[in-house]
């Protein structure tokens, strides 16, 4: 018996509605976040992540209500990312019922924010989200850099070094997204996932590019991830969480069934 590898469905929420994903131009409405979260919980999701992609900060309050409502009926860990920039943003989400918050851009601009947040709220609730893109030329050793603003702005930061730094600053977990793969359905960037997972002592969640259930298992076996995150393959009932776990179990991965 041992610790199960986790499957984490991610809900991209825009102004209180689940949408298909940031990378898709034709954003399709995928329903009410509370209903979707309830369905994932029933299917055996190990955690649920909400990514708030609401553009206007005025509408952020909507996300607080979504979290409150979900936390009142779904009793598994909930993570909220998107627009978390201050200690007060974190406090609001935790008070609404979130267990963890994802910090992305704010960490890049001010790494000390991660340290302060971990000190104040505990490392267990600080997830540092890393968006990485491969930057080496063909033939050169593989190298990835951190990008912000949905993969548009390079920062010059090396992804592996950055992940180590964030772990040392008190991140409890890393949510790693390959910007090259996100939305492509070609599978995780396994080399990137493995490089980061082997470099840090904390758990790593692989994200970006899942198109089928084998991809999830690949992320664990080849990418050495501790958890796998996917959005679109679960939203339209293409696959259930249960099917994903059965597929992983068939490949010898320990899961919670």
């Amino acid at each position: 018996m041992s610790l199960a590898k986790r499957i984490i469905p991610c809900l991209d929420v825009d102004n209180g509605r689940v949408v298909k994903g940031v990378k898709f131009v034709d954003i399709r409405d995928a329903g009410d976040p509370v209903e979707v979260a309830r369905r994932y919980d029933r299917e055996g999701a190990d955690e649920i992540t909400f990514l708030d992609i609401t553009a206007s900060s005025d509408d952020r309050e909507t996300m607080v209500h979504v979290v409150e409502e979900v936390a009142g009926e779904v009793f598994i860990p909930l993570t909220v990312g998107g627009g978390i920039r201050t200690l007060d943003d974190i406090r609001r989400m935790l008070n609404a019922g979130a267990d963890k918050v994802g910090i992305n851009t704010a960490a890049v601009f001010n790494p000390e924010f991660v340290r302060d947040a971990a000190r104040r709220f505990g490392t267990q609730c600080i997830v540092v989200a890393i968006d990485a893109k491969q930057v080496n030329r063909p033939g050169e050793p593989e190298r990835w850099e951190i990008f912000t603003h949905g993969g548009r702005k390079p920062t010059g930061l090396d992804a592996v070094a950055w992940a180590k730094k964030m772990a040392a600053h008190g991140a409890g977990e890393i949510l790693l997204t390959s910007m090259d793969r996100d939305g492509t359905r070609q599978g995780f960037d396994l080399a990137l996932t493995r490089a980061i997972s082997e470099a840090v002592p904390i758990p790593v969640i692989a994200s970006g590019g899942v198109g089928n259930l084998q991809h999830l298992a690949d992320g664990i076996i080849e990418g050495k991830a501790d958890a796998v995150l996917a959005a679109s393959i679960f939203h339209f009932a293409e696959y259930t969480i249960r099917q994903a776990k059965e597929c992983m179990a068939a490949r010898g991965i320990e899961v919670r069934l």
Binding site: A4, I202, P203, V204
Partner: peptide, 11 residues
């Protein structure tokens, strides 16, 4: 290597 914190669902 097992990650620390021990995080997730265990028996």
């Amino acid at each position: 290597i097992l990650k620390i914190p021990h995080m997730g669902w265990n028996q």
